[in-house]
């Protein structure tokens, strides 16, 4: 499996998109650091949004392209023979590590340049990479047609990034007569992007804006337990699609 991981990494680093991915993070985060004063609340929100926008999008697209395009080559590897297990997980690890590397380098260099501490956000970005590569593998294995996969991948991205939050707002506005606090907290768990957003909200102490009426939120997210709860949910978000995807891959005709 180690061989597969290194091969995936090598293959990825020579891809021009890998460079583009890191560069776009370098440029865009530098722009944000440069224009927004780092202490400004809105600047940190833009930085967060940059991560929440690009990381899932790239991970999904890159993950599914890499999986689908390399399908014929997998025949060669499987015939060597190599186990499906090491191909699947090796590829997953290689891709995730490669994308994370590009992201961390891009954002890390620019944050060092402007000496801003974004380690927490970068850590979450890495976790998001692993999550969305998992999801892309899941989709690539359950859907047959290539064009369909890319369509669905973009849809999923749109769903998590945008539609989901719209739905939360819609629910709130439609059901505003009922107590909804628990529902909102629960809904947050079902979208990894929102979980990350919540973790940053807590860490940056934006949750102070809820005042005392956000008590329930604090109960679930506030303390160290809240952070570990969020962390646990993110790990589930990695494992669940990954294992389901592998389950399918193992039974699949290639």
């Amino acid at each position: 499996m180690k061989t597969i991981i290194f091969y995936e990494l090598k293959e990825m680093i020579r891809n021009k998109w890998w460079l583009g991915y890191g560069l776009s993070f370098f440029i865009l985060s530098s722009l944000i650091f440069h224009t927004g004063v780092t202490e400004s609340l809105r600047a940190s929100a833009s930085l967060l949004n940059l991560v929440l926008l690009l990381v899932p999008l790239f991970s999904l697209v890159f993950g599914s392209i890499s999986f689908v395009e390399n399908m014929p080559f997998q025949e060669v590897l499987l015939a060597i023979p190599t186990s499906r297990f090491s191909i699947f997980f090796g590829k997953w690890l290689g891709l995730s590590i490669g994308l994370s590397l590009s992201f961390v380098l891009g954002m890390g260099v620019s944050s060092l340049w402007y000496s801003v501490n974004v380690v927490f956000l970068m850590g979450l970005g890495v976790v998001l990479t692993f999550i969305f590569v998992s999801i892309s593998f899941l989709l690539s294995n359950f859907l047959k047609k290539k064009e369909l996969i890319f369509g669905i991948v973009l849809l999923i991205w749109l769903l998590f990034f945008l539609v989901y939050d719209v739905a939360i707002m819609a629910i709130v506005s439609l059901l505003s007569d009922y107590p909804l606090e628990k529902l909102i907290v629960l809904l947050v768990f079902f979208n990894p992007i929102d979980v990350v957003r919540t973790m940053v909200t807590i860490q940056e102490d934006l949750s102070a804006m809820m005042g005392y009426s956000g008590a329930l939120f604090y109960k679930y997210f506030g303390s160290g337990m809240g952070v570990s709860l969020c962390g646990g949910i993110l790990i589930l978000w990695i494992l669940f699609p990954l294992i389901l995807g592998y389950w399918k891959y193992k039974r699949k005709d290639l």
């Binding site: 061989t3 597969i4 091969y7 293959e11 014929p72 080559f73 025949e75 060597i80």
Partner: peptide, 23 residues
């Protein structure tokens, strides 16, 4: 295989050594 579709960005020598190390 008929259309092996080897990964585009690695060298031939690297491909061959990849297969050897997997084997």
């Amino acid at each position: 295989p008929q259309h092996p579709n080897f990964p585009p960005n690695i060298k031939v020598s690297e491909l061959l050594s990849l297969i050897q190390s997997l084997k």
